[in-house]
Design a protein around this nucleic acid. Structure first.
Length: 692
DNA sequence: AAGGAGGGTTTTTTT
DNA sequence: AACCCTCCTT
């Protein structure tokens, strides 16, 4: 029997409710991950076969952690393993098994954001819409919204209500046709096609329904319509469904998530038992009060009261700096001081921000001051041009139908295949409905392309074919194969040629090395490595972090508020608390209560990541599109205060530079402002004496 | 076909 | 400021 003595009574209540619909409303820091893990372990301890339990987590990382923790709880005497997965990864498993029922090949490729963009661009061109009428990005987000609502391209065309939607639906059809021709699916398709499979093929549905007796969903507040359909299909037979979430932390509305799912859970699933987890063990009371006051400004939420279990030690400060550079410099200086003088571990500190453009300055400072750091998430690595090129090579090698990738690298680095010829092949291929290479052969016969260009194309095809068979015969040699490929196509010399600057050249070289190590790491960890497997794990963001960069490494964490979800840190710096940034300008412009409410929840998530110390910073001015502009404090800073409408006191501006722009009395160091209404420190704490 | 100059656009958040 | 696209020259 599982030992539950470490749990409080409501946690235990949730863990011991093993059948029927169960809704766990779990506030921030109330141990929800613990509960869902214990519950899975408990089901197994009560004799449920592990592989008959499906647990869905929000990220692959969370899935890995849950598997490990559950294994520890149960003590490794499991013959079978519980299924712990993200929605997307689980759908890939289903589709690899059964997608042929829908007329797709089982070896489908998964298109990432960049591939989608290229496909959208082609689609727009095919329907003769210039960039002026609709940008590829606009088309993609419209398509994505349709897909999240389960709307097919045909249905989108029939029900379009505006000119934009009408055009977009034409783009949608074209886009979908192109994906199909390339043997590819995009991210949304993974979910949509699975639901379609279940709807149109009852035999397949029955197979999966019979596979699981229990289903658990984490972060339920962030499920979208298609995910809801999926869940509903799966549990229809038994309704053994446990969902865990917090409506105050719903931050993915822009991706189609609907809070209504968690709010209306009990009416969707009659007989629901609801358990509330309201004991917060994470934050000091000062931090929690601050969070509660803020989120109270949202209407339309489950009104819950989180009870702080930590003392009210004041750990909340607001700091103001003159520009984003001093913001970064002073925050990093303080962190550096904490680490070197006060024995704080680097990994106990996190810097959180709203947008991916913010960490740049912080990275510079951290490097300059030699503070070890890790930039979490932010696909910056995979967004680099070099990496995207190499990925396109691998995709072309893996899937000969993937024209999006082919077109990206067919003349990168330049090999004498010009745009005119490529274009000609493409146009004819589309017209006749044949593949790119078939058309090359045909136009060659007809002497419609210059001989030299055809030769370059054929040479290139041979090269790809050579690597295709190499990758197939020796998949465990993938890192070496990739290295050889870079040399073969002259990618390294191209970099040497393009970048005159020594430092830049080195940075790019290192990028390539890092790419090779990513492949090496995959080959090392995967039970049966293949090229397709590598590409799939990249697409699903299921890569193992480099061992020294992983969870335990002693580095300061930098991440967006979105990627901070589910994590906690003893010290949090929430930077850039300004109108336009948090709440973000795009949400302000929408001028809807709903959009601002989501930004507020985002701030709430940020605040509640902090266990002991929270520092909110803002900068009085910021560079935007090459221009310096004044910025004003975030409305959330005001809302956090006890008395509504109270003005923030005029704060000191950090100004240790000598330009004298901000004249006046400047304290000899970072200003330490306590919000009015915050209890005074009841215990000595190093912040009472700022270290500067 | 390649490379460079000039002009226009951009930044929300991510499985 | 940084990037991408287009156009122009070679």
């Amino acid at each position: 029997m599982l030992n539950l003595s470490g749990l409080n009574s409501s946690q235990r209540d949730a863990v011991e409710t093993l059948s029927g619909p169960l809704l766990v409303l779990a506030g921030a820091g109330t141990g929800k991950t613990r509960v869902i893990t214990y519950r899975m372990a408990n089901l197994i301890a009560r004799g449920i076969q592990p592989d008959r339990i499906l647990s869905v987590t929000f990220t692959n990382k969370a899935a890995r952690e849950m598997r490990e923790r559950a294994a520890t709880l149960i003590g490794g005497r499991m013959k079978r393993r519980p299924v712990v997965s993200t929605f997307h990864a689980w759908c890939v498993r289903v589709l690899r098994e059964d997608i042929d029922s829908l007329g797709y090949p089982r070896q489908f490729a998964i298109y990432d954001r960049g591939d989608q963009e290229s496909a959208a661009r082609t689609a727009l061109r095919d329907i003769r819409l210039g960039d002026a009428a609709m940008k590829p990005g606009d088309l993609i987000s419209r398509i994505s919204t349709w897909k999240m609502q389960g709307v097919s391209s045909t249905a989108a065309g029939e029900h379009s209500e505006s000119d934009f939607d009408f055009l977009a639906s034409m783009g949608y059809r074209r886009y979908q046709k192109q994906l199909r021709a390339s043997g590819a699916v995009d991210f949304d398709d993974l979910l949509l096609l699975t639901v379609q499979l279940f709807r149109e093929h009852p035999d397949v549905l029955r197979k999966y329904q019979a596979r699981y007796d229990h289903v658990q969903i984490d972060e339920y507040q962030d499920t979208n319509g298609v995910q809801f359909n999926l869940i509903e299909y799966l549990v229809r037979a038994h309704n053994n469904l446990c969902v865990v979430g917090d409506d105050d932390q719903s931050i993915y509305g822009w991706r189609g998530a609907e809070v209504e799912h968690i709010i209306n859970f009990a009416s969707h699933f009659p007989g629901t038992r609801t358990v509330r987890l309201e004991n917060n063990y994470r934050c000091t009371r000062a931090i929690l009060d601050c969070a509660n006051r803020l989120v109270r400004h949202n209407r339309n939420r489950h009104d819950k009261t989180l009870i702080a279990h930590k003392p009210a030690v004041s750990g909340v400060r607001i700091q103001v700096f003159k520009d984003e550079e001093s913001e970064a410099r002073r925050v990093v200086e303080e962190i550096s001081y904490l680490i070197s003088e006060l024995g704080v571990k680097a990994k106990q500190v996190a810097i959180l921000f709203r947008t991916n453009e913010q960490p740049r300055v912080f990275e510079q400072e951290l490097r300059r001051q030699k503070v070890p750091y890790q930039l979490v998430g932010g696909q910056s690595f995979f967004d680099r041009r070099e990496i995207r090129d190499l990925m396109a090579y691998l995709k072309t090698i893996d899937n000969h139908r993937d024209e999006v990738s082919l077109l990206r690298i067919i003349n990168t680095p330049p090999r004498g295949i010009g745009a005119t010829s490529t274009e000609k092949v493409l146009q004819n291929a589309v017209k006749k409905g044949v593949g790119f290479w078939e058309m090359v052969d045909e136009l060659n016969r007809l002497r419609e392309i210059p001989v030299r260009t055809v030769q370059a194309m054929l040479d290139f095809r041979n090269l790809i074919e050579r690597y295709r068979s190499a990758a197939q015969t020796a998949p465990d040699q993938l890192p070496e194969i990739a290295r050889r490929l870079m040399l073969d196509v002259g990618y390294e010399s191209e970099i040497a040629r393009q970048y005159k600057d020594e430092a830049q050249r080195e940075a790019r070289q290192n990028l390539l090395e890092e790419f090779i190590s990513t492949i090496a790491l995959y080959v090392e960890k995967a039970p049966a490595p293949t090229l397709s497997g590598f590409l799939e794990s990249m697409a699903l963001q299921d890569r193992d972090e480099e061992s020294e960069q992983d969870e335990e490494s002693d580095r300061v964490r930098l991440m967006t508020l979105h990627s901070a979800k589910g994590l906690e840190f003893p010290r949090v710096y929430l930077v850039g608390m300004e109108e336009g940034l948090l709440p973000h300008k795009r949400s302000i412009d929408l001028d809807s209560e709903k959009a601002i409410a989501e930004e507020r929840r985002l701030a709430y998530v940020g605040i509640t990541r902090a266990m002991d110390h929270l520092t909110l910073t803002r900068s009085a001015s910021r560079m935007k599109w090459g221009k310096r502009r004044d910025s004003i404090p975030s409305r959330f800073l005001f809302e956090m205060q006890e008395e509504p409408g109270l003005e923030l006191p005029e704060e000191h501006i950090d100004n240790d530079d000598d330009d004298g722009f901000f004249s006046g009395p400047t304290p000899p160091g970072a200003t330490d402002h306590k919000l009015p209404g915050f209890p005074a420190a009841s215990e000595p704490n190093e912040f009472d004496q700022p270290p500067f």
